[in-house]
C-alpha cells in the first residue's frame, strides 16, 4: 500500500513542465492526486518521475471570457463550488460540485485532473459533455482545442497525448432563458454515482416566430457507459416543443434509457442502472420545466397533466 519509488519535480511554469514531460518518457502528471495517488499506493501504476503541476499558478483560477467561463485545469472542486462567478453563470456546476466525492477530496482534487482521469461516473466529464465544453491542451508544438465529446475517448481514457498538458476548460454561455437540473444516485453521499444525469432546457421565440418554444434541450448521463454521454434521440423529442407533457417527458426518458447499455458491477446491475437512467431523466426534465416556468411564466414549457 505504498507507492513504488519515483523522482519528483514541481515546475513553476507551463513551459518548464512541458519540457520536463517531453524529456521524460514514462513521467506522470500530478494534479490534485486524488485518483493518481491511490493508484500509485495500490501499485496499479508506477512512474519514474512525477511532475507536480500544482505550483503552476497560470493553470489555476476561474475567469469570465465574454459570456463564457474559463476554468484553469488546476482549479480545485472546492474553489469552483464557492466561486461567485460560477454561482452567477453556471449554478448547475456549483450544484454538481456538492456531489463530487467528499470535502477533503474536493479541497485537493482538480477540474482538469478529473477530466483527464475520465472516470465514466464522475461529474466533470458529465458537465463538460452537457455544456459543450472545449478543452485547451498544450504541447511542445503548441496548443489545440478539443471538444469535450472528442476529449473523452473511453473509460479512464482521454485523447490527451503523452506529451500534452490540459491547460483550461471553456464553458460556453448557455442561452439566456435556460433552466437546468442535476441529480445522481449513489450508495452514500460522495460515492461514485451509479447513474448521474443533468438536463438543460432553453426557451426562446415570440409570437412572430410562432410562439415561444424549447429551442435547445440537452440531456447528459454518467455512470451508464464508457464515458459521459448525451442522449441525442431523447433531446430531439424535446427540442422544438411548445409544452412538455408528462407523456412526452416519460417517452424521452424511455428513449434515453433504451439507448444505453450500461455495465453491471458489484454495486448495481445493468438493469438497475437503466432503471435509474429512466427515473432520473424523467424527474430532471420535469424539474427543469417547472423551474423555467418560474422565469418565463407566460411562455413556459410547463409539464401539463397530473
Amino acid at each position: 500500500m505504498k507507492p513504488a519509488p519515483f523522482d519528483y519535480c514541481a515546475p513553476e511554469s507551463l513551459d518548464e513542465a512541458l519540457s520536463r514531460l517531453g524529456n521524460s518518457p514514462g513521467a506522470k502528471l500530478l494534479a490534485g492526486g486524488q485518483s493518481l495517488i491511490p493508484m500509485l499506493n495500490f501499485r496499479l501504476l508506477s512512474t519514474d518521475l512525477l511532475i507536480d503541476l500544482t505550483k503552476i499558478s497560470e493553470l489555476r483560477g476561474i475567469q469570465p471570457h465574454g459570456r463564457s467561463v474559463r476554468i484553469g485545469a488546476l482549479t480545485t472542486h472546492q474553489d469552483v463550488e464557492t466561486s461567485p462567478l460560477i454561482r452567477e453563470r453556471f449554478p448547475l456546476i456549483g450544484e454538481a460540485m456538492r456531489h463530487v466525492a467528499h470535502l477533503a477530496i474536493r479541497n485537493r482534487g482538480t477540474v482538469g485532473g478529473s477530466l483527464v482521469h475520465a472516470d465514466p461516473s464522475a461529474e466533470w466529464p458529465l458537465l463538460a459533455v452537457l455544456l459543450n465544453a472545449r478543452l485547451q491542451v498544450a504541447g511542445l508544438g503548441g496548443q489545440r482545442l478539443i471538444e469535450a465529446q472528442e476529449f473523452l475517448v473511453g473509460a479512464l481514457t482521454s485523447s490527451l497525448s503523452d506529451d500534452e498538458i490540459l491547460v483550461r476548460i471553456d464553458f460556453p454561455a448557455l442561452p439566456r432563458h435556460t433552466a437546468w437540473a442535476f441529480d445522481e444516485v449513489a450508495l452514500r453521499a460522495g460515492d461514485f454515482a451509479l447513474c448521474a444525469a443533468a438536463v438543460t432546457l432553453s426557451t426562446g421565440g415570440s409570437f412572430l416566430t410562432g410562439g415561444p418554444r424549447i429551442t435547445d434541450a440537452r440531456i447528459a448521463l454518467a455512470g451508464v457507459a464508457d464515458t459521459a454521454i448525451r442522449a441525442p434521440a431523447a433531446e430531439r423529442m424535446i427540442r422544438g416543443q411548445r409544452y412538455l407533457t408528462l407523456e412526452l417527458v416519460d417517452q424521452a426518458a424511455v428513449c434515453a434509457r433504451d439507448a444505453i447499455s450500461p455495465n453491471a458491477d458489484l454495486h448495481a446491475s445493468a438493469d438497475y442502472r437503466r432503471h435509474l437512467c429512466h427515473v432520473l431523466v424523467k424527474r430532471l426534465l420535469g424539474e427543469a420545466a417547472r423551474s423555467s416556468a418560474a422565469f418565463a411564466p407566460s411562455s413556459a414549457p410547463v409539464v401539463e397533466g397530473k
Binding site: 514541481a10 492526486g33 507536480d52 477533503a104 477530496i105 479541497n107
Partner: peptide, 13 residues
Amino acid sequence: GRSVRACLTLAVQ
C-alpha cells in the same frame, strides 16, 4: 486550514 487526506498527499507536496 483545509481538510485533506494525508494518505493522498505526498510529504513533498
